[in-house]
Computed example of a mutant assay.
Amino acid sequence: MSGDDGSLTGGRRRRSPALSSPLDNDDLLSDILLRLPPSPSSLPRASLVCKRWRGLVSDRVFLRRFRARHRRGAPLLGFFTQVPRDVSFTPTLEPPDRLPRGRFSLELGGGRCRILGCRHGLVLILSRADPRLLVWDPVTGDRTRVAVPPEFGDGGSAVVQHGAVLRAAGDVLGGEDHPIPFLVTLVGCDEEFTRAFACVYSSETGVWGDLISTACLSMIPMHIPSTLVGSSLYWLLGRNPSGILEFDLDRQCLAVIGVPLNIGSYNHLRHWVVPAEGGGLSFLCLSGYSAQLWTRKTDCDGVTGWVLGRTIELDKILPLNMNPEEEFPPLIFGFTEEGNVSFLATNVGVFMVQLESAQFKKPFQLSILDVYHPFASVYTAGNSILNNADVTA
C-alpha cells in the first residue's frame, strides 16, 4: 500500500533523501570527530568503527585540524628527564592512553646539553658547545636548530642562563609547508650579575629581536624551567631569591618582582612560580609538610604585593610514610601549567598533585634526581597506542 505522497510502500516508510543522517556527510562527520577528546586512544578507537571513519581520522588535513583545536588543552602525556647523554621520557597516563616508555627518545650527542623546558608540545634544549638551541617536537619528530644570537655569544654582553619555548596564539593549522610558528625566549645576565637580558626568536621571521635588559642583582638557576602566566614568562632568581624575573612578551619588557617575605631559607626544590587560581601570579612555598600558596594582588591604594592565600598540609592529603626514621619532606621536582599540577617527591615516590583541589595521582618511583619537564601534547600516531595498552612504566 502506498499513499499519494509515496511515503509508504509495502507497509514500510520510504526514507527521504532530505532525512539522511548527518553522519552520511563526510564534512559534518569530520566536524563531529574533531570534538573527540584529545586522549591518545580517541582517534585509534574511532578508526576501528569502519573503513570510512578510519580514512577520515587518518587524513592529514583532519589531523592538523585536530591538533590545532586541542593543542591548548592537550593532555599531559608524561615528562622528560635528562640523563648524561640523552633525554628520557616517562609516561604518566593510564591505559589505554599510556604511551610506551620508549616512544620519544633523543640523543643529545654530548654532555654539554641541557633541557630548558617543555611547552605547547615542544621541547627546548640548549647546547653549550656551539652554542645553539634545538626546538624539538617529539610527536612529529620535527627539529629546528636555532643559533644563539651574538649578544649571548663570545664577546657579547650576556651569558645564557635559561630560555623558554611557546607556540603562537590562536588556532593556527600549520602543515608540512607552513608549520605552526613558535617563539623562543633566551634570558641571561652579564658577568657581574648587575643586569638581566632577554631576546626573542620568531620561527616566522627566522631572526632574533632586539636585546632587552633591566637591572638585576642575581643569576637565573639553570635547573628551574620558566612559568607562563598570561602573556608573561617568569623565572626565579638566584639561590637566595632576590626576586622573580618577569618578561612580558606583549610589551617586550623585563622587570624584577620581589618574592613573599618570611618564606624561610631558599631551596630551588621548595619554591616555584605558578599561575594563580582564576588568573594572575602565585608563589608556591614548601616548608616541611606544609605548602603555602601566595597570590600577588593589588589593593585599593594601587599597591601590589603578596597575600597568603592557602596553606595545605600535605601529610593530610597524601598517603605518606610518616616514620620518623624515613622522614623526607616533599620537594618540588616539576610543574606543568596544564592543570596547575605539581610533581612532589616524597619518601613513597613522586605524586602529581593539583594543590587547589587537593587531588593527586598514585605515586611513581623516583628514578632520576633531577627536575622533571612535564610534556603535554596531542598524540595522533595511528592505532599503535591500542596495541601497546598493556605497556607499563
Rank of each mutant, 00 (worst) to 15 (best):
residue 5 D to M: 07
residue 6 G to N: 13
residue 7 S to T: 13
residue 14 R to S: 11
residue 19 L to R: 06
residue 24 D to Y: 13
residue 25 N to E: 11
residue 26 D to N: 15
residue 26 D to M: 05
residue 30 S to G: 10
residue 33 L to I: 08
residue 34 L to H: 06
residue 36 L to P: 02
residue 39 S to A: 15
residue 42 S to D: 07
residue 42 S to H: 13
residue 45 R to F: 03
residue 45 R to G: 05
residue 50 C to V: 06
residue 54 R to M: 12
residue 56 L to F: 08
residue 57 V to Y: 00
residue 58 S to G: 15
residue 62 F to P: 02
residue 63 L to M: 09
residue 63 L to D: 04
residue 70 H to F: 04
residue 70 H to G: 06
residue 71 R to Q: 12
residue 72 R to G: 10
residue 73 G to W: 03
residue 74 A to D: 06
residue 76 L to A: 12
residue 78 G to K: 00
residue 78 G to F: 05
residue 80 F to P: 01
residue 82 Q to I: 09
residue 83 V to A: 12
residue 84 P to F: 09
residue 84 P to Q: 11
residue 85 R to I: 05
residue 87 V to K: 01
residue 91 P to L: 09
residue 92 T to N: 07
residue 93 L to H: 06
residue 94 E to T: 12
residue 99 L to F: 08
residue 105 S to P: 04
residue 112 R to S: 14
residue 113 C to Q: 06
residue 120 H to F: 10
residue 121 G to I: 01
residue 124 L to V: 07
residue 131 P to W: 03
residue 133 L to C: 04
residue 133 L to D: 02
residue 134 L to P: 02
residue 135 V to F: 03
residue 136 W to F: 11
residue 144 T to P: 02
residue 149 P to E: 04
residue 150 P to Y: 08
residue 160 V to M: 09
residue 162 H to M: 09
residue 167 R to K: 12
residue 168 A to Y: 05
residue 170 G to S: 15
residue 176 E to A: 13
residue 177 D to V: 14
residue 179 P to W: 04
residue 180 I to W: 02
residue 184 V to I: 09
residue 187 V to L: 03
residue 205 T to K: 14
residue 212 I to C: 01
residue 221 P to H: 06
residue 224 I to K: 05
residue 225 P to R: 04
residue 229 V to Q: 00
residue 231 S to F: 09
residue 232 S to P: 08
residue 232 S to N: 13
residue 234 Y to W: 07
residue 235 W to Y: 10
residue 236 L to I: 11
residue 238 G to H: 00
residue 239 R to N: 12
residue 245 L to A: 02
residue 249 L to Y: 01
residue 249 L to K: 08
residue 251 R to M: 10
residue 251 R to F: 09
residue 257 I to K: 00
residue 262 N to W: 10
residue 262 N to I: 15
residue 263 I to W: 02
residue 264 G to K: 06
residue 270 R to G: 02
residue 274 V to Y: 03
residue 278 G to R: 07
residue 278 G to V: 08
residue 278 G to C: 08
residue 279 G to W: 00
residue 282 S to C: 14
residue 285 C to R: 01
residue 285 C to V: 06
residue 285 C to Y: 00
residue 289 Y to T: 08
residue 293 L to N: 00
residue 301 D to R: 10
residue 301 D to S: 09
residue 304 T to Y: 03
residue 306 W to H: 04
residue 308 L to I: 10
residue 309 G to D: 01
residue 312 I to N: 07
residue 314 L to M: 07
residue 315 D to Y: 06
residue 316 K to D: 13
residue 316 K to F: 10
residue 319 P to I: 00
residue 325 E to I: 12
residue 333 F to S: 13
residue 335 F to V: 08
residue 338 E to H: 15
residue 339 G to E: 05
residue 340 N to Q: 11
residue 364 F to Q: 03
residue 373 H to P: 04
residue 373 H to V: 05
residue 375 F to R: 03
residue 377 S to F: 03
residue 381 A to C: 14
residue 383 N to R: 12
residue 384 S to P: 10
residue 386 L to T: 11
residue 386 L to W: 07
residue 391 V to L: 11
